[in-house]
Computed example of a mutant assay.
Amino acid sequence: MIDSFLRDHHLGTRDIAAGPTPPSLPAPPQLREKGRAGFADYLATSSPHRAFAVSPKGAYAYRSGRRSAREAAEAALAACTEYGPDCAVYAIDDELAEPAGAGSR
């Protein structure tokens, strides 16, 4: 009934009103099942400025709702290092982060 009303008034359907689909980024390969679920939660978060950090051994953390991408990355990295000393930022907002040193010459 609702979809019919929306269609009749050229408003689309509830699927369109539900919002955008999460971005499609590959999960870090070192994550286990719980970490992959955490990464899926990160992708589904629509808060502005979010970041995901991970260690080579699978420790991870993400933070969202920050004022800037840099602030989100710093917060995720700080949270991740509580679980693993060698964490790196993996994703920022909807993009993979640059590897350390990739942007400098």
Rank of each mutant, 00 (worst) to 15 (best):
L43K: 05
L43A: 12
L43W: 11
A44F: 00
A44G: 09
A44N: 09
T45K: 12
T45N: 11
T45Q: 05
T45Y: 02
T45S: 07
S46Y: 06
S46A: 06
S46N: 09
S47P: 00
S47L: 11
S47Q: 10
P48C: 04
H49S: 13
R50S: 09
R50Q: 11
R50G: 09
A51F: 02
V54P: 02
S55E: 01
S55C: 01
S55H: 01
P56A: 08
P56V: 05
K57V: 10
K57P: 00
G58N: 03
G58D: 02
A59C: 03
Y60E: 00
Y62Q: 13
R63E: 14
S64D: 10
S64P: 00
S64V: 08
S64F: 08
G65C: 13
R66P: 05
R66N: 15
R67E: 15
R67G: 15
R67P: 15
R67A: 14
S68G: 12
A69I: 07
A69K: 09
R70S: 11
R70N: 10
R70W: 04
E71G: 07
E71S: 12
A72W: 03
A73Y: 04
A73T: 06
A73V: 11
E74R: 11
E74D: 04
E74P: 00
A75L: 12
A75M: 08
A75K: 14
L77G: 08
L77V: 06
L77H: 07
A78Q: 08
A79G: 10
C80T: 09
C80K: 01
T81E: 12
T81S: 07
E82K: 02
E82Q: 12
Y83W: 08
Y83I: 03
Y83L: 06
G84I: 02
P85M: 06
P85L: 09
P85I: 07
